[in-house]
Design a protein around this nucleic acid. Structure first.
Lengths: 218, 218
DNA sequence: AGTCAAGTTTTTGTATACAAAAACTTTGTC
DNA sequence: GACAAAGTTTTTGTATACAAAAACTTGACT
């Protein structure tokens, strides 16, 4: 039993916020949360400090804590940063990747291909996640890997959604192949460039999706 | 008066950790800190949760919180990430920067030049900081700007130290000129490349510095 | 009805209380 | 003297208490 109370409450709340359980600007009631987790306010408040630092929540003095959901612009910005972090991973991985990891990437890609054939976005997403995380790890830079993973977690729900757009699965697949080729060739610049595009396009797609939704709602 | 207690304690502690007031692995005594800040343990513990999330401190269950100072390898890794974030800023800024900002960069550079002539590393560092932050802002991406600034804060003491190496001031200056030219030309790839090198070399210098120090100590 | 002030309730921020775990001290044994 | 077991102190994690600020309610006045 660790310092679990605060830890697990923070984890649970983070997951809930990322899953979109709370609306933007929704106030989180300490007392209510304390009841729900069957603890006192103390560990809840400590967990909320963590979320504050992570930027998932905002504290307004003497008012309470409020959920922060990214809007269209911030989301696009986050995808831009994600694209740069992943491009960096690919760049370093190009010279540092091991043969075993290249083999794993090939395997992941084959399973992705299978998922494409079966039109199974969930399955695709699972293997796609593996593909990307292998590259994070193969950057040979633990700090970069951690930062990339952190932002990945944050964007996961949106990356997932975007895959349901028509034709996107196939296109994504082709980009994976291209990335794998660049890594196999050990071409750092090409790997970085292709990866950057691969992620940036997701942000663009998503942004486009949001704006059409918004126009439709008016 | 805001939610100041927790906030300002967190800020103070962060500054102290970054300044190297505490050793790596040093335990932070809640009671002692509470006394020092003339508050109870509660706000201190909340501040420590923030530092935990920021990665400045590690919590071992039932043992306490311990300061985490990056070692040589982690530092090099952080410089690599910094180089990529700043390269990204330069890349976006190349197409998004305003004429006024370009003028400000020129001004900052001139003041840097003056500091080089006067052999004044502190003055140089001040203007250098301005130079870099203008580029963060001109990336036109608030999230990227925030992430770059965050890591900048973390590395600031080390970036600073590295400037005292012989010839580094002059070299750094030349790189600034080169970055400015690329931005003026609107050449995104060149701006990114030069910036990446400009930062990465700092990490290398620092890493080299540390290894020679370590070898000398043995 | 709408507005505003006084009073009431809720909620936040901080201090304190307390149990359980860890660290430290003492004392007895070989 | 080295070691170990029992007891003592310290420290952590959590609950609770309480004051001050904010939010809400009520009722008088225009």
């Amino acid at each position: 039993m660790a310092k679990k109370q605060t830890d697990s409450i923070a984890d649970d709340l983070e997951a809930m916020i990322l899953e979109g359980v709370f609306d933007d600007n929704q106030r989180l009631d300490e007392v209510q949360l304390a009841k729900r987790f069957s603890v006192s306010r103390t560990p809840v408040r400590e967990a909320l400090q963590r979320l504050t630092q992570a930027g998932l929540v905002e504290q307004r003095p003497r008012r309470g804590v409020f959920v922060r959901q990214p809007g269209a612009i911030e989301l696009l910005e986050m995808f831009e940063v994600m694209s740069e972090l992943e491009a960096a991973c690919a760049r370093y991985a190009a010279s540092r990747i091991s043969d075993e990891a290249l083999e794993e990437l090939r395997e992941a890609n084959e399973k992705c291909e299978q998922a494409v054939r079966e039109q199974d976005p969930d399955r695709y997403y699972l293997e796609n996640e593996r593909f990307h995380h292998i590259i994070y790890a193969q950057s040979g830079n633990g700090f970069l890997e951690a930062e990339a993973s952190r932002l990945y977690r944050r964007l996961k729900p949106f990356r997932r959604l975007q895959l349901r757009l028509r034709g996107r699965l196939r296109q994504s697949m082709a980009e994976h192949e291209s990335i794998l080729r660049a890594l196999t060739d050990g071409d750092a610049d090409r790997a970085a460039g292709v990866m950057r595009q691969h992620i940036a396009v997701q942000g663009d797609k998503f942004h486009h999706l949001l704006s059409t939704l918004k126009t439709a709602a008016e």
